[in-house]
């Protein structure tokens, strides 16, 4: 049976931009985790009851890698845990992306802390391409941030081209140097200010980020007939399907983001 279990911290370090990378020894989760799935992390201080759900950013042999932003007391305490210590975790949770039928040119579009699950997706897609085990031939990443960019170098290792845009700091935005969100970036690329090879030939898209961004992606992809899978973020309670804290409206009725998602076909999501 699935259960909450103890995992040893292998690494828990700042990588810049207020982001921490944590690696945990969790062989069973590492063995089965798929891009788009998440893990519940429980804080050792018992007054913090609720798990923190984080998307799996990598799973390799014995360990899983997660990234989190230090935003409150809970993540602050989490960031103080040293390697060698133990944390309780539960996972992998949720459904994950379907990487099988995405066509030849796949777009990965992230906003803020949505990038970790797409980093994992990029790695797996590259493996599939190298094994000629997929219709995919090309991967483009478009990553948006409010301020400082993170994980761009990591994701670009697996992508044929990577674009970055920051809402507040144009020096972070590469190669255009403009500020804005990823939709602004798409429009600039389409207007031809940068030669984005084959941006008009995208066949499938995976996207993870805040709701307004995903809704905009749905519109952008919908207009072009691009199949889009969205990984929804939500404030969760249990993260395992019991509390009904994180449901969303879909064309086929109410769904729980934590167990029926977090990845949905964008066509099914009723945007609010």
């Amino acid at each position: 049976m699935k259960k909450r279990e103890r995992a040893q911290i292998l690494e828990n370090i700042k990588i810049g931009g207020g982001i921490q990378r944590i690696r945990l020894h969790a062989p069973e989760i590492a063995d089965t985790a798929k891009p788009g799935q998440f893990v519940n992390l429980y804080l050792p201080q018992k007054q913090f009851l609720l798990p923190r759900p984080f998307g799996v950013a990598d799973a390799d042999g014995q360990a899983i890698t997660l990234y989190y932003m230090v935003v409150g007391q809970g993540t602050e305490l989490l960031s103080e845990k040293k390697s060698g210590h133990f944390l309780d975790i539960l996972g992998p949770n949720g459904n994950g992306y379907d990487l099988s039928a995405m066509g030849e040119h796949i777009l990965l579009a992230s906003g803020g802390t949505g990038i970790p699950s797409l980093l994992f997706a990029a790695r797996r897609l590259r493996e599939l391409i190298q094994k000629s085990d997929s219709s995919a031939k090309k991967i483009t990443a478009v990553t948006g941030f409010r301020d400082t960019a993170f994980l761009v170098e990591e994701i670009s290792k697996y992508c044929d081209q990577t674009f970055v845009i920051s809402e507040t700091d144009g020096t972070q935005s590469k190669p255009l140097g403009m500020t804005g969100n990823i939709l602004n970036l798409f429009f600039a690329l389409e207007a031809g200010s940068v030669k984005a090879s084959g941006l008009d030939k995208i066949t499938g898209c995976l996207s993870c980020g805040p709701m307004p961004m995903l809704r905009a992606m749905d519109q952008w992809c919908g207009d072009k007939g691009i199949a889009l899978q969205v990984c929804l973020e939500a404030r969760m309670g249990c993260g395992m399907g019991a509390c009904v804290g994180c449901t969303c409206e879909t064309t086929v009725g109410k769904k729980k983001i934590c167990v029926d998602g977090p990845v949905f076909d964008a066509k099914e999501v009723c945007w609010v």
């Binding site: 309670g237 009904v244 449901t247």
Partner: peptide, 23 residues
Amino acid sequence: WRGNPLPRIAETPSGMLNAVGLE
């Protein structure tokens, strides 16, 4: 019943608040 809009959950010291609205 459709329940309440999100967010429905908030953490509190040694507890949690829920406003699922009996979805």
